[in-house]
Design a protein around this nucleic acid. Structure first.
Ligand SMILES: [Mn+2]
Ligand SMILES: [Mn+2]
Ligand SMILES: [Zn+2]
Ligand SMILES: [Zn+2]
Lengths: 143, 143
DNA sequence: ATGATATCGCAACACAGTTGCATTGATTGT
DNA sequence: ACAATCAATGCAACTGTGTTGCGATATCAT
């Protein structure tokens, strides 16, 4: 874990007014270094060796998500995946999931989402709030 | 449960070459009578009183889904919902989920999906297979 | 350094979904 | 109508993700 990720993580956490604990810093640094969205289990594995309870990991992830430093991604395998909120993902965006290796990546800005909102007609009396769009397919390694 | 749903269910099951057991017929009849997508738990509750093991319910639902008589819908609460495959839902279609009461309904044909496929650009080397689109908002009762 | 309290670690729990296996029952052939 | 077949069921045990309560620990302001 390069030092720049660690100090960036610590800065982000302090900016939110939270305590910069070892767990928080290390978890966020790991996520900053990751280009794809990963599961609680995957983070736990990458952290093995270091002292870190699984409940703490759940709580840290929720804390980071509540403050908008990361976002949670739902999936059809019913496991949450987590990814840092880069500037490009500040707004609603679509996700891609590989049907072979389960890799999940964020797709930049959801221009199509806005269009879908107009094209899809909701039943009468329904109110639109948000759109969730996942593309399924094969990633470059699995094609 | 009106008799027409029961006989329709039995006919659908026999057409697939499966045994028309009480469980299958009653579960499919219940789904035919339902306009929204419901969970395993909700089906179990509506069936209480009648003899039906929860594992059997899981297996019947999977059997019906494998044969295309119903479809499974994934959701951010990580619980599957099930809905009969009416003609209008034969193709890919979007879903609506109420953020207040968790009601899930199918939205007819995904014209916008085809458009989204074109508008969203996948990373180089990725192959498109399918699109999953969920609109979140408030249903008519929760507005 | 010290105290207040946010955070952590542990144990127990909740709940959706799965698997193995013995028993039951729907269908088929006589 | 009856028996044979084997698909489907019921039950018990299990898996995996995620949650809750609470006493112990560590961070940070003073
Ligand atoms: Mn994302
Ligand atoms: Mn549907
Ligand atoms: Zn892949
Ligand atoms: Zn509602």
């Amino acid at each position: 874990m390069p030092n720049t990720y660690v100090s960036a993580a610590e800065a982000m956490i302090r900016k939110e007014g939270g305590r910069a604990t070892d767990s928080r810093v290390r978890i966020l640094a790991l996520l900053l270094a990751e280009d794809q969205a990963i599961t609680h289990r995957e983070i736990e594995t990458r952290m093995s060796g270091q002292q870190l309870d699984r409940v703490t990991l759940y709580r840290v992830l929720q804390w980071l998500a509540d403050r908008g430093l990361i976002h949670k991604i739902s999936s059809d395998d019913h496991v949450w995946r987590f990814h840092v909120n880069h500037a490009a993902y500040a707004h609603q965006h679509a996700h891609f999931k590989c049907t072979n290796c389960a890799k999940v990546v964020c797709l930049e800005d959801l221009a199509s989402g806005r269009q879908s909102e107009r094209l899809l007609t909701l039943p009468a009396g329904y109110r639109f709030q948000a759109i969730e769009l996942t593309i399924k397919g094969l990633c470059a390694k699995c094609v």
